[in-house]
Simulated assay, not measured.
Amino acid sequence: METLLSHSFDYLSSPSPQKIRKGLRQLEGLLAQICMSRSQTPVANKRHSMLALGSTPSTVSPKKLGDLPADPAYREFFKLQQSFQWNITMRLISTLERLLGKESNGTHDLLVIQTLELIQGILLLHSPSRELFAREIYMNLFLDLLSPECCPAIQSTTLLALVTSLLDCPANTRTFEALDGLLVVTSLFKSRTTSREVKLKLVEFLYFYLMPETMAPKVTTSATNTAVLGGRGREIAAAFDRRRETINNAVQGQAKDESGKTRTMEEKQNILGKYLDNVQDLVEDLKEGGGPFGGGL
């Protein structure tokens, strides 16, 4: 796995769009191998399967999330992501920064979208990497990509990646708020030039933002890391705890205790009300189960 990551990182650091695309595809293939299980078609049905699909007699299906910690490939992946050298999120962030520095065109827009989709996947598979977005410099990338000048596809994909970065990370949400992220989101929603598809994504994001915040206790996180990584789990988890403290201290304009503070729905409602009218309607809809993911409160 280290060899594959090394080759992918080399491609991502290239100025060539073709090589960047190749590096992104290699990472997509790695995630596919981790997330998908391959099962063999029974011998009796092998001929029928090959005729029907025109491919190999094996099929792929998503692995259950609860089964991933027991999977050797996922355990190796998680272990590598705990290392700064092999952390994929950091490399994708660097790639995104370089792409944003280039002239916008169809090719670069597709690479930006592909990079954002990979960031979303990585943050779901390796939650400690979300802590990177407690830093203003990285959260600002998402806000830059919500600019009206960006195409609707980039805006929609950015909103999904942004939601993933905020999951169970109050410090990240505080950074988002400190950078006037709500102003960026609501301004985009009010703009007449914003597409209907993006506005629907923005409403979903606001529903998500209004939900009460929770943060898993450290003991739960350590136990999970130990289960995934084996005996060295506690040691690696402790290293990321130290990293979390460093990141929180680096958040500009916020005290350490404030960066990890959770907010209630009522508190968020008051904050969002400064930028958007009829927030109460969103809250009522959310409580009645009309919000994102089909769940009420």
Score class of each variant (00 low, 15 high):
Val43Glu: 13
Gln85Asp: 11
Glu213Pro: 00
Ala32Trp: 10
Arg38Tyr: 11
Leu53Ala: 08
Arg242His: 03
Thr89Ala: 09
Glu288Thr: 05
Pro128Arg: 11
Asp109Ile: 12
Gln254Lys: 13
Lys256Phe: 12
Leu100Cys: 06
Thr194Met: 05
Tyr11Trp: 12
Arg130Gly: 11
Ala161Cys: 05
Leu146Pro: 14
Arg242Cys: 02
Cys151Ile: 14
Arg192Asp: 12
Glu284Asn: 12
Arg232Asp: 04
Val283Leu: 00
Val112Lys: 11
Phe208Tyr: 13
Lys190Met: 13
Leu68His: 05
Phe176Asp: 09
Gly273Ser: 15
Pro62Ile: 00
Val228Asp: 01
Gly231Val: 11
Met90Ala: 09
Gly231Met: 11
Gly295Ala: 14
Ala153Gln: 12
Arg174Lys: 08
Phe240Arg: 04
Thr193Glu: 09
Glu76Asp: 12
Pro217Ser: 02
Tyr209Glu: 02
Lys256Tyr: 15
Gly295Leu: 15
Pro72Tyr: 02
Phe78Met: 06
Lys256Trp: 15
Glu258Gly: 01
Leu206Lys: 02
Val251Ile: 15
Phe176Cys: 09
Gly23His: 01
Ser127Glu: 13
Val163Asp: 04
Ala153Pro: 03
Leu31Ile: 13
Ala73Pro: 00
Phe293Thr: 08
Leu166Cys: 14
Val228Arg: 00
Gln155Arg: 14
Lys218Phe: 03
Val184Asn: 06
Leu202Cys: 08
Leu125Ala: 08
Pro292Trp: 09
Leu51Asn: 03
Glu76Asn: 11
Thr226Gln: 13
Phe77His: 02
Ser129Asp: 12
Cys169Val: 13
Arg21Gly: 09
Leu132Val: 04
Thr3Gly: 05
Pro212Lys: 00
Met36Ile: 10
Gln33Trp: 06
Leu53Ser: 09
Arg38Asp: 09
Ala171Phe: 07
Lys79His: 04
Phe9Trp: 07
Thr226Ile: 12
Ser156Ile: 14
Val185Asn: 02
Met1Arg: 12
Thr164Cys: 12
Ser191Tyr: 03
Met36Trp: 13
Thr115Trp: 08
Ser94Phe: 14
Leu96Phe: 00
Leu160Met: 10
